[in-house]
């Protein structure tokens, strides 16, 4: 690691004021490994752990609101998340391993927008709202590309607000080594709408409108028979080819529908 100054922010205002030239530090599960590799040279790390009021889970008027500093393990074991949106608890409980889940946070995961990260599929699938220190950003506008988001430099995610929907399920095919999603599919049925969202397969999360229309007509796995995804532009690495990932998308989507049906 290159040298940096360490700042422990006591409030949102302090964090935002201290960050120019540096980085926010949440769970550190992505940032610290990248600093060890000297991929970045921040002047300071602004630790968010001491800021009151940005960790924790609340049910407010038909929505589940999760503070940015909430650990994956706390979302996975939350009684209210398990009861109201079990797909989200499953997703959080399947991130990495228990040790990663004990440190990693939802704010860090979405700000980082790794193409193989799990949370972006839920944020888009549920049409969640991202609340920052300066505005509210709808999920559809948040994830803009490979490791990029709509966040401005120095903008701090405070909370993510998920509507409670009728039913949903998330199924992923994890990389056997890291447990990141080679392909993960979130299927959400919210009123008359269905959203099918894919992570891991491409440079950024994306929806599958053809799959969604088929499921609006008939919410059963068989509705997806014959629907395929083109391998063009999908990720290709030592874990699998683009064609393999394209195939996995259809398989994971059908499994997610089957799981959601049982809810």
């Amino acid at each position: 690691m290159y040298a940096f100054n360490y700042v422990r922010a006591g409030s949102v205002a302090e964090a935002v004021q201290a960050v120019p030239g540096g980085n926010f530090l949440a769970g550190g599960m992505t940032l610290l490994p990248s600093l060890k590799l000297r991929l970045a040279r921040p002047d300071q790390l602004v630790d968010l752990a001491g800021i009151p009021g940005i960790a924790g889970i609340e049910e407010v008027g038909g929505r589940i609101v999760i503070g940015a500093m909430t650990r994956h393990s706390d979302v996975a074991s939350s009684a209210v998340v398990r009861a109201k949106i079990p797909a989200l608890a499953d997703l959080a409980g399947g991130i990495g391993d228990p040790l990663v889940r004990n440190r990693g946070t939802i704010g860090g995961a979405i700000a980082n927008n790794d193409p193989s990260a799990d949370y972006p599929a839920a944020v888009v699938g549920f049409d969640a709202t991202i609340i920052t220190d300066r505005r509210e950003i709808p999920a559809a506008a948040f994830f803009t590309g490979l490791f990029s988001t709509a966040l401005q430099p120095g903008e701090l995610v405070l909370r993510v607000s998920f509507p409670i929907v009728h039913r949903a399920a998330y199924v992923k095919f994890p990389s056997p080594a890291s447990r990141y999603a080679m392909v993960g599919v979130m299927v959400v049925q919210a009123g008359r709408d269905v959203r099918v969202v894919v992570t891991g397969a491409g440079p950024c999360v994306f929806r599958l409108p053809a799959f969604e229309q088929a499921l609006v007509a008939n919410f059963v796995p068989a509705a997806l028979e014959g629907l395929t995804v083109s391998a063009d532009g999908l990720n290709q690495d030592l874990h699998g080819t683009a064609e393999y990932r394209a195939h996995l998308v259809s398989v994971m989507a059908a499994r997610a529908v089957a799981q959601a049906q049982g809810r």
Partner: peptide
């Protein structure tokens, strides 16, 4: 996971946490 310790009762990887955290 060779470096796992407990911090306030939670098992964490101590190679991926700053001492100051």
């Amino acid at each position: 996971g060779a470096c796992v310790v407990h911090v306030d009762g939670r098992a964490v990887k101590s190679c991926t946490m700053l001492a100051v955290q």
